[in-house]
């Protein structure tokens, strides 16, 4: 009697373990931080590209407008690929683009913009990657859709056409 109890309970436990392992097989093992929406933009002050001006984030994102913050760098290959989409988004009057130049060499960054065009209304400089962390970013490229000083959407990795359509419909 006692034996049977142990037999069934141990089989039962192993069946549970089995099903948990089975389920976990279909989950990705790569962690991406979940996006908490309606998160306030960080408080930070930063340098603007090509000027000596120091400006705070609350000044940059001051109006009720939509803002699109894009973290980019001239050495980052996917940034090059998504750049034409940013140029297209720039044409939209409802949104202002903010570029966060990540760990870049100023000359290279300027060459990059000369070659591919400058979609940004303002470019802020993040020389050591500290600001990217303030935003909760992991790498380049990464983009944030901001409205009323809150992050309403986050895009990890390069944009594509579908995402662009999504963004455009969001800001209408």
């Amino acid at each position: 009697m006692k034996n049977k109890f142990f037999l069934f309970s141990s089989i039962f436990i192993f069946v549970i373990i089995f099903s948990i392992f089975y389920k976990s097989l279909h989950k990705t093992n790569i962690y991406t931080p979940s996006v908490k929406l309606d998160k306030k933009i960080p408080e930070y002050s930063t340098e603007v590209l090509n000027t000596d001006k120091i400006i705070s984030y609350s000044e940059i994102f001051d109006t009720e407008n939509f803002y699109f913050l894009n973290i980019w760098s001239s050495w980052c290959v996917p940034c090059r690929d998504e750049h034409y989409l940013l140029m297209e988004l720039h044409k939209d009057k409802n949104i202002k683009l903010v570029g966060l130049n990540y760990k870049d060499n100023i000359d290279n960054a300027q060459k990059f913009l000369k070659e591919l065009g400058n979609p940004f209304n303002i470019i802020i400089v993040d020389i050591d990657g500290v600001q990217a962390i303030e935003w909760g970013a992991v790498g380049v490229p990464e983009s944030f859709l901001i409205h009323k000083k809150k992050v309403i959407k986050k895009y990890i990795g390069p944009l594509d056409k579908n995402l662009l359509i999504q963004i455009k419909s969001l800001i209408k």
């Binding site: 500290v130 990217a132 962390i133 992991v138």
Partner: peptide, 12 residues
């Protein structure tokens, strides 16, 4: 790059 930046952030 992420780790290098994070080290700076922690030090700050």
């Amino acid at each position: 790059d992420f780790a290098i930046s994070l080290k700076i952030v922690v030090a700050n």
